[in-house]
């Protein structure tokens, strides 16, 4: 019998408190390698806090996080972060560096020099024209910037991608296109992806597995199909009801 690979991410009895606020309560779950998991919840539900314990931008109050079967505290902090691609809503492109320099910075930190062809390859992955390589971030549109953000997260050949509301600030058309693109990359590169979003429709359309968070707890852990079939309990169903109602109303109009 072959040994199962360890889960890409595992939370064990994880708690995070900010003074009297209990942001994450007793979360224990595992995310298998190759999964695309969406973490959905309203603002303040604790989903971003949970996500950021993975690359230790936030340290938990209690419990452990394992990445690749190993406690995140056993990694040198920088080594841990360098093996995790991180994409977030405000993108954080370095305004003093060109697009190519932004993308190449991660490998440069580790002492590697990115071949020029590799930058073009990464730009291709996120559907960007090679001409943007020499531009400064300020000269790009919001959608282009987040595409660069994704390319930058992938430059270090990370196998684990964590995303915090990655498409939250984009217009609906760009948002849809980039979401699909990321899902394609996930499949093609064999990534494990954990994405925080407040948009249930996005979660249902992109993920294999949807976690719903409410007041710091995981209240549902279902497949998109299961959620649409009514599983997951009332908090999850309230969230699913939104796109469902929208779809009905659109159908009535059309």
């Amino acid at each position: 019998m072959s040994e199962d690979p360890p889960p890409a991410i595992a939370f064990r009895a994880l708690n995070k408190r900010y003074g009297s606020v209990h942001a994450v309560r007793d979360v224990s779950l595992a995310i298998a390698q190759g999964a695309f998991v969406a973490l959905v919840g309203a603002s303040g539900s604790g989903k971003s806090t949970l996500l950021k314990t993975v690359n230790r931008l936030i340290e938990p109050s209690e419990g452990t996080v394992l990445v690749g079967g190993r406690d995140t505290r056993d990694y040198p902090l920088h080594a841990l972060r360098r093996r995790i691609g991180y994409v977030f809503q405000s993108i954080g492109l370095f305004p003093h560096l060109s697009v190519a320099e932004n993308i190449a910075l991660g490998p440069r930190l580790a002492g590697a020099r990115l071949a020029e062809g590799r930058v073009r390859e990464l730009l291709d992955l996120v559907d960007l024209d090679h001409a943007v390589a020499g531009r400064m971030p300020a000269a790009l549109s919001g959608g282009q910037r987040q595409r660069v953000g994704v390319a930058r997260a992938l430059a270090g050949e990370a196998r684990l991608l964590i995303m915090d509301e990655p498409f939250g600030a984009l217009d609906p058309v760009t948002r849809d296109a980039l979401g699909e693109r990321v899902r394609e990359l996930h499949d093609r590169l064999g990534l494990t992806t954990l994405m925080v979003t407040h948009d249930m429709a996005e979660a249902l359309l992109l993920a294999d597995r949807v976690l719903v968070m409410d007041a710091g707890r995981i209240v549902a852990d279902e497949t998109p199909r299961g959620l649409l079939a009514g599983a997951g309990g009332p908090a999850a169903q309230d969230l699913v009801e939104v796109p469902r109602r929208q779809a009905r109303r659109l159908a009535e109009i059309g």
Binding site: N55, L57, L77, H78, A79, L80, R81, R82, Y86, F88, S90, I91, G92, L93, F94, P95, H96, L105, G106, L109, A110, R152, G156
Partner: peptide
Amino acid sequence: LDAGVIEAADGMGMTFAQRLRLVEAPL
């Protein structure tokens, strides 16, 4: 300094010195 830029620097695994030299100082 833009908080997002600092978050990106930390998130991509910059050490204290790298963040200072590559991001904070030039900005």
